[in-house]
């Protein structure tokens, strides 16, 4: 873990498409945002296998479904927020027939910044998590995004992967063998509290853990890049070992990573939990770091949450 280099997870998606191009069944679909989601890198090299759908996300999702039904492996991307416009198409046309269409929603979360709340998807993980058959992921850096995207070729169900626009510290070294769909990765070990994070908040959680260590609190930090299926075994183990859990996500506290962990814990191993996430409100225009502070999901907010629940025991 170097954390010194910066990269955007959306670049990992673009790289993955190129490195999967040897598969003749791979097709890439775009809805006028290829330059943003980085599918444009594939289009430049393989225009004959790239399908432009214009600004028409509802159509794109079902074109992808039709391709999948005929044996192709479609990867469709747009902004996270615009995938939501096609929610019912995804629900009825992709998930219900369980067609392996892989959706990438880039520019997810409030971290996307100055476009303001219209572009800041804070509910995508929750809504896609509610769909049967769907795999839902939110990787933390370009390396893990590339590895996880490539692993989607091995699964037979549909998936949604949220990537981020802005550069954040690279967490993984290339070819990290721990990165598997459905398996959380323990990036740091400590017995006082477990911080379970996803996406851009993983590096923030590592920063928070470092600062907590200076105060004598040792935190485990887990990159829970797969929200569904949730790595329940790991969550159970963390609850047994650390007794206190904090979840961290650039997403609503309702229904996303925090929701998934809360559901598991309350049914199986009731544990003191604090969810760091967006508290049922919309964002606004601002720089990424400003948004995290405004919405109380910054590094300091993670630290405060840990201190708060430490006081409870």
């Amino acid at each position: 873990m170097n954390m010194t280099e910066l990269a955007a997870s959306r670049d990992g998606y673009g790289n993955a498409l190129i490195s999967m191009s040897g598969d003749p069944k791979l097709v890439v679909l775009e809805a006028d945002l290829g330059k943003s989601t980085k599918s444009c890198w594939f289009r430049d090299k393989f225009p004959e296998r790239t399908v432009s759908c214009g600004i028409g996300e509802q159509n794109m999702m079902l074109v992808a479904a039709g391709l999948a039904s005929s044996g192709f492996k479609p990867f469709a991307s747009t902004f996270a927020i615009f995938t939501e416009r096609a929610f019912e198409q995804v629900r009825n046309g992709i998930c219900r027939p369980n067609l392996p269409v892989h959706i990438c929603g880039s520019h997810g979360g409030t971290h996307t910044g100055t476009d303001g709340s219209s572009a800041q998807s804070i509910e995508d993980l929750a809504i896609y998590r509610s769909l049967p058959n769907m795999v839902v992921m939110h990787p933390c850096d370009d390396v893990s995004t590339e590895i996880l995207t490539k692993k989607l070729l091995e699964i037979k169900s549909p998936s949604y992967t949220r990537t981020a626009r802005n550069k954040t510290p690279r967490v993984y070294d290339l070819d990290d063998s721990r990165i598997q769909i459905g398996k959380g990765v323990k990036l740091r070990s400590g017995s006082d509290v477990a911080i379970i994070a996803c996406g851009v908040m993983v590096s923030k959680s590592l920063e928070a853990a470092k600062k907590l260590s200076e105060r004598g609190i040792e935190a485990t930090v887990v990159d829970m890049h797969t929200i569904k299926p949730l790595d329940e075994e790991l969550v159970h183990q963390l609850a047994s070992e650390c007794k206190l859990i904090v979840t961290v996500e650039d997403h609503s506290v309702i229904g996303g990573l925090g929701g998934a962990v809360a559901e598991y814990l309350s049914e199986n191993i009731p544990t003191i939990l604090r969810r760091v996430g967006v508290r049922d409100r919309f964002g606004e225009s601002g720089q990424a770091e400003e948004m995290l502070e405004l919405l109380k999901i910054s590094t300091n907010d993670i630290i405060d949450s840990v201190l708060e629940i430490k006081e409870k025991v």
Binding site: M60, V63, A65, G66, L67, A68, S69, S70, G71, Q89
Partner: peptide, 15 residues
């Protein structure tokens, strides 16, 4: 929904 799905099938046939 069917026409969009049909486009996918028609593209697959072309590919």
């Amino acid at each position: 929904m069917g026409l969009s799905f049909g486009i996918g099938c028609a593209l697959a046939s072309r590919f």
